[in-house]
Design a protein around this nucleic acid. Sequence first.
DNA 1: GCATATCCGGACTGACAGTCCGCCTCAGTG
DNA 2: CACTGAGGCGGACTGTCAGTCCGGATATGC
Lengths: 206, 206
Amino acid sequence: MAQQRAERADAVRNRRAVLHATERLLAEGGGEHVSLDRVAALAGVGKGTVFRRFGNRAGLLQALLEERSRELRDAITNGPPPLGPGAPVRERLLAFLDGLGAIAEDNAVLLSAHEQACAEDKYDDPSYQFWHRHLSVLFAEARPDLDADFLAHAVLAVFDGNLIRHMTPPDDPRRFTRSIQQMATALLDRGDHQAVIPQPIPEQDR
Amino acid sequence: MAQQRAERADAVRNRRAVLHATERLLAEGGGEHVSLDRVAALAGVGKGTVFRRFGNRAGLLQALLEERSRELRDAITNGPPPLGPGAPVRERLLAFLDGLGAIAEDNAVLLSAHEQACAEDKYDDPSYQFWHRHLSVLFAEARPDLDADFLAHAVLAVFDGNLIRHMTPPDDPRRFTRSIQQMATALLDRGDHQAVIPQPIPEQDR
DNA sequence: GCATATCCGGACTGACAGTCCGCCTCAGTG
DNA sequence: CACTGAGGCGGACTGTCAGTCCGGATATGC
């Protein structure tokens, strides 16, 4: 039922080659220069093969993204706390943002290219829906007074490849993750006391 | 100095015609179908004219967006409170989000098309920088303990045409604005009830 | 009127996503 | 091994689009 017949050996080989070629092109040139012609050429396969495997440009990039995030997905579903079930909401949320932030920082170019290719249907992508549901549940639990569904979308909207590249200085590759964790923390804190430790910081002008 | 010579009358007429044609195409078809060929044809001008006026696709859409938001920009800089200077931070932020939210809700398709066309250089766009600076100043004042620069980017990241279309039900066109106001409010509230002295707001520099 | 700086139109180029179909190869069978 | 056909393969082909270019038209100042 899962598969009537195993995938043919050459098909498997080609799928790997295409993904690998895509990685290489993304790594060397800017994400815009990754045309499917070039991917096919570098992978040593025909263009038709790329489309048969991945459907379209968005599908190819999505497959790559999925590969990079499968581990995190599994850890959230089945792994030990704080990523997996069982930890307090706050710890779980921070662990999740740490994981997703790392992936995003490491793959900002891929992320940009994917956003570019996806256009509308980004929100139907199963990966997106997984992250959204996870965040949504956490927010709903911690802040039933807010619109958790919206907050989940809002947090994910910040995982924008271009934005990440724009705000990540070379000497501080994890600035993005720290900042979004700080923002999420601020969102979790209700009007009542606790945490955050307000730093004096008199004021900042720019 | 402002202009060595006034713009020629036909040039002005054509610019209007092109912008108007773009509006019409955006309004009837989905944003993706607004090719510059079509815009030129509908406007009754040559393609070259469109490019001479607006530089490229992104420039055209940006011009349209700027037209739709000029009023809000002016109100923030020179208008009366709560949009303009003088109101407490919280009121000013909510008024701003109300205004920008309305524009975004009314122009979600245009917004999507612009994001698609802009790609990287969205963050260099003067309009974007204006909104960002405004938000950044407000956040810095209300929450000196947080990363105001990041928060401003994060809030603007949520103004995504596709996201807005995705989450706006036909019977509640202002859901987006309400939700983002709620989120911003949550971000302003410090964890403790430490008095946030409502300062008379000196003004913003630059 | 006349001169010329400016603008106009649309043919042209190059690049790309996605399709199609005849050929080839793998893998299962006897 | 030889056979066979389902499925995979390649790359030519199509349609579309952004952006360029230049000969010709025209508004404007004198």
